[in-house]
Amino acid sequence: MAEPEKSRTTYHHGALRTELVDASVRLVESDGVGAVSLRRVAREAGVSPAAPYHHFANRAALLSAISAQGFHELAEDLAAVARTGDGPGEVAALVRCYVDFARRRPGHFQVMWRPELSEPAKHPVVHESGESALMQLTSVIDGLEVPDPHGLALALWAIGHGLASLMLDGQLAHTAEKWDTTADDLVERCLRVVSRMAH
């Protein structure tokens, strides 16, 4: 027997917002970002089609909430690594942290970099939380004696993002199979290169 559909009275006001965000992330992970609409999310959360509008003006606002949540968690993860104070090893650990975050939160990761969320004026919370995450990387690099810290920060960001994207898309596993190794091994080999870059 199927479980009865939840009504919106099941949730307290704050809990409904959280459930809508969680339902959206589940949709992204199963069907991609294109599947997210307020109507579909309402159905997934078991509430009326009008209920999401009490918390989100439109789809962009919902995606913005997911993105900000993801950046906030990523910033916390990176900050924990940055406190180790291990120089070049710390830089490689930050890149690993970025990849691990994408693996652990694939739905958030797919939403965080959406181009429609990149305008600070329209999505200030996303901009602020994204800047906080980037600051963790640059703060570590600023403590190293490298000739171009901004260039290194960009290179590390690109490497971390590239590895994470390749992993989520299955391309890293495909390459690992051809090279008779594992995706994790390829990540570790790349991180050893990153560590040498930071010296």
Rank of each mutant, 00 (worst) to 15 (best):
T175G: 06
W113G: 10
P147A: 11
A176K: 07
H55E: 04
A68P: 05
G162N: 06
T175Y: 13
W113N: 10
H108E: 08
H13N: 07
G107H: 06
I159E: 07
H108G: 07
E116M: 02
L186K: 09
V146H: 05
A183D: 14
D185G: 02
V25H: 01
S24D: 00
A68F: 10
G162W: 04
E116V: 06
A60R: 11
L62W: 00
K122R: 15
A164T: 11
E188R: 10
H72E: 15
D185Y: 02
T138P: 06
E128V: 14
A133T: 11
G14M: 11
H199F: 01
E73F: 05
P4H: 10
G70N: 11
P120T: 02
N58T: 00
G160S: 07
L74Y: 12
T9A: 14
V111C: 00
A2F: 12
A50W: 03
V111F: 09
G14H: 12
Q69L: 09
G89V: 01
E128M: 11
E29Y: 07
V28Y: 10
E73T: 11
H108C: 01
L27M: 14
E90M: 12
R105C: 12
P88I: 04
T9F: 14
S48T: 11
E73Y: 06
A75Y: 11
M135S: 12
V25K: 04
P52K: 07
A102S: 13
T175L: 14
L166N: 13
D180L: 09
R59W: 00
R196F: 00
